[in-house]
């Protein structure tokens, strides 16, 4: 079964939304909110779009609103993959 890891999320974040100047994505960022990391709602929407393309899972807009942290996004995606 395909799973989606925090490292996958880090790669997608940096690849499609860039890396904020004061942030190291390799740090323990799983539970830091996207807002605190320096990613706005548009950036999270872009990450969700890339995840959908890569894994073929559908992520509705209201689910994107609930993804407040990278770990929350990872957990959501894995639930969808397991379903």
């Amino acid at each position: 079964m395909t799973t989606f890891s925090l490292d996958d999320m880090r790669r997608i974040m940096g690849g499609c939304a860039g890396v904020p100047e004061s942030v190291d994505l390799a740090d323990d960022i799983g539970d830091v909110t996207f807002v605190e990391l320096g990613y706005d709602s548009l950036a999270v929407l872009e990450m969700a779009a890339r995840i959908q393309q890569e894994l073929g899972v559908r992520i509705p807009d209201d689910a994107v609103d609930e993804m407040k942290t990278p770990q929350a996004a990872v957990d959501y995606v894995n639930r969808r993959l397991a379903a």
Binding site: A17, G18, V19, P20, E21, G38, L42, A43
Partner: peptide, 8 residues
């Protein structure tokens, strides 16, 4: 250009 700014 800073990375976050460059992508957008």
């Amino acid at each position: 250009v800073p990375s976050r700014l460059a992508v957008q």
